[in-house]
Amino acid sequence: MTAAPPGISVVLPARNEGDRVGATIASALDAADGPAGVEFVVVDDCSAPGRRPEVGDAAARRRTTVIRSARHLGVGAARNLAARHARGRILFVTDAHTRFSAGWDRAATRLLAPGRILSVTIADSASDWRGHGCRLVVPYMGTRWNTAPPGPAPHVHVASSAGTVLERALFDRLGGYDEGMVHYGGFEPEFSVRAWRAGAEIAHTTDIEITHRFKPREEVASFVGAARTAIVHNCLRFGTAHLPESMILEMVRLHALEFPEHIRAALALLEERGAWRRREELAATLPHDFAWFVRRFDLLDQIGRPVPEQ
């Protein structure tokens, strides 16, 4: 007799996370109402020896698939790879250094619907801060956290990758995260905007809380320093794919002024990785344009001006 497939697949990209992976999985199993219905798919994104994912508990190991990549994929491609190996109807996308709130699996199953992505509440493990999804910053193409839950309408621009829940069928229909982006930064806001443009909705919930280990400032500086060109490229690719044409050059200049040492390499990557082709593909296939998203949220640019239609 073949075991029933799990209802929920928790997908975790892990690069140099070591035993944090096992602790994350243990937390999810302990907090689940129905741990038997949960599996974990971990993509070891080319971790250094000695810092590969560790899952110490035998019962947790039986529920976990670890896929090791010999080359650095980046978080988007790693999540996509994990999703391809997932068997659950529901994907719970999170990070490898998180903790789950009680009953998270039941709440996810109850709140999810076809065409709906759940943005779950993100708590900081070292303070009482909480994030309730993010809002888009244009034309920078970054995000800012919402620090309070949305009002009566639960919708948010962007679901954090530390807590994004959706049906696997929807993830597949959207095409997963954009693998034209590189390594790190910008994946989930792009995914979220594309999801809205594709006709999905992103609803925030406070019924599920993921406690996340945020990096301390010195760790952030070192990490972002190493990833800066990739982050600039990903922001530019995000904007090239979605912004009205009249804002694209403004976005490029904004990044050029701020990151003059990275902009040329980022622009070369943009051309190399087919950003303009991506823009055309999305325009041809998505039912809504970016102007629809702007109207949907009354979005203004980052200094409060109207966002142009074209």
């Binding site: 993100i122 920078y140 970054g142 995000t143 930064g185 945020f214 990096k215 760790e219 952030v220």
Partner: peptide, 18 residues
């Protein structure tokens, strides 16, 4: 001057990020 945005496109909480 833009640290609140550029520290990370995803997360920033006071002195902590990512």
């Amino acid at each position: 001057a833009y640290m609140s945005i550029t520290l990370h496109t995803i997360t920033i909480t006071a002195d902590r990020g990512l």
